[in-house]
Nucleic acid binder design. Sequence first.
DNA 1: CCCGTGACGACAT
DNA 2: TATGTCGCCACGG
Length: 117
Amino acid sequence: MTDHNFFERVYVVVRLIPIGRVTSFGAIAAYLGTKGSSRMVGYALQVSDKAWPPVPAHRVVNRQGLLTGKFHFGSNLMEELLESEGIKIQSDQVQDFKAIFWDPAIEFSLEKPDITN
DNA sequence: CCCGTGACGACAT
DNA sequence: TATGTCGCCACGG
């Protein structure tokens, strides 16, 4: 597993995010064991367009549920993508963020069977 | 090789 | 609660 680069590890986790759910940079960083380098997660997503398979980077927001990276998607593409998945956005902020928050360190490790995507 | 930058986050004031 | 500062580490100039 350590054969993969840090960036690719980020992509793997992000691709695990169920549709209609979101997670934070810090949660991913913590799950990867690099809790302090949450900035690297954001950097990885910035260049995720050259990764394959595609990475749903729009499902990753900051700790406040704010769409800090929407500018990198161009206009309001990030917001539209999230709303198309049923996520409500207002003022660049995810509504009911706590409710749809998906923590890989918790929910994924439990391997909940009711999550089908 | 050194310096500034950055999709963040925790803590101090 | 809001604002400022520091730590984190990869990358480009």
